[in-house]
Write a protein that binds this DNA or RNA. Structure first.
Lengths: 222, 222
DNA sequence: TCCTAATTTTAGGCAAGCCTAAATATTGCC
DNA sequence: GGCAATATTTAGGCTTGCCTAAAATTAGGA
């Protein structure tokens, strides 16, 4: 019943992204900028999506998603982020390379696929960039967190979670004096193997492997 | 350089499938039938693909793939079959449900993705239907297989593939407790209608119609 | 408020893919 | 070989998405 083209899906997602923070409406130009297309094309598409009941459009007034449009957009975000987890966790892509591929994978149509993927990945709550993954009903956890590997030297942050909670990994963290709530500062990142040197509050300096950096969620404090 | 649309890719694949067995050229009608589209649309597309150098087209003469076209088609088959392995092996889909999803996944463009997926799946040589998966250079393993209908009473063999992978056929096999790897022994062949009686390992005896026997590939084990 | 600048929409066009109907070419049978 | 049946191509049209240029609307500063 609601089979959208990839183009339509991309517009929905753009409107969603623009309106998710500030709850104003999305302007034609903002959408055009986000999609690298012309304002005229945007107007074209907005009319079509409006006719399908996926967003509310009034000339010169910008648009907001309808409930149905919002559901569809949220589901796209869910698919995008689940695929990113798959690419990083299973195929060992580095987190900064997965976006373009996930952008393609998110358009694959199969609810069963998404559900099975979710189970396979053990229902992750956050993607490799620390962004929350909406569940099947559209709800998402609220936490602004990022992977240690995405921080830069100088960043100060608090450990707020792990991606993978295996016993061995948690034990390792324990040994390193890292636990939820631990404050740390990034000193240096070694690009050649992805390892990072960090300093704890008491001044202890430790080096963490790439694998560890990819599994630690932090909340920036500065 | 060679970025094809999904439609173009689907046509290439259809031509590939039609020409891979008998090495005659693919006719307009055969392609139209395979793609459930009109002959006129096929002619349209053949001209375009010919202009791109992906196949050799002469009016009223049918087409064959060019070397480049053949490479691209083989790569599509590779991607399709790798994704099928992923869906069955990792996500536990039943083998009769994976085709449509793989049909979508095969169009995702990323060589690195395919390579990593291949490694992740441990470079499988055959897909869940028993069809060989071309390697990155286009070569595929040869399956020593015969149709069930060509076996004689007394022969012992293992199911290694199907000729026709429609959902209904696969579901039927499932019901009959036949799947890849199933061992069986031919008990009797009824020449008047081509049906065959076989025994499974556990002693179960079943009778299969001629149509089924013509669609099951086996590897003789004795 | 008024007028210019910025934004948005409309008009008109184009390519990709699809369709049906009509024209043309090929095949195969007598 | 000739002619009917079949296969293929051409012609003309449609939708989707994109474009540019021009027109219309809105917003913001003097």
């Amino acid at each position: 019943m609601d089979v959208l083209t990839q183009a339509e899906e991309n517009y929905l997602k753009a409107v969603f992204k623009i309106t998710e923070n500030d709850d104003k409406s999305a302007s034609t130009n903002a959408i055009a900028a986000m999609m690298s297309t012309s304002a005229a094309s945007v107007t074209d598409m907005l009319k079509r999506l409006s006719a399908k009941g996926l967003l509310h459009y009034e000339k010169h007034r910008g648009v907001i998603l309808s409930e149905r449009g919002s559901e569809l957009a949220t589901n796209l975000v869910r698919k995008h982020r689940l695929w990113e987890v798959f690419l990083v966790k299973m195929l060992h892509f580095s987190w900064d390379k997965v976006h373009d591929i996930a952008e393609q994978l998110e358009h694959v149509q199969s609810d069963e696929l998404v559900e099975r993927l979710d189970v396979y990945l053990e229902r992750p709550q956050f993607d490799p960039h620390g962004d929350p993954i909406p569940d099947a009903s559209g709800k998402m956890a609220m936490r602004k967190q990022v992977l240690l590997s995405s921080l830069d030297p100088g960043d100060q942050a608090v450990v707020v979670g792990v991606q993978e909670s295996t016993a061995t990994f948690l034990q390792y963290l324990d040994k390193m004096q890292l636990s939820l709530g631990t404050n740390l500062r990034v000193l240096e990142r070694f690009d050649y193997d992805g390892s990072m040197k960090i300093a704890l509050n008491d001044g202890t300096e430790i080096t963490l492997s790439h694998k560890v950096c990819e599994n630690l969620f932090l909340q920036k404090s500065k």
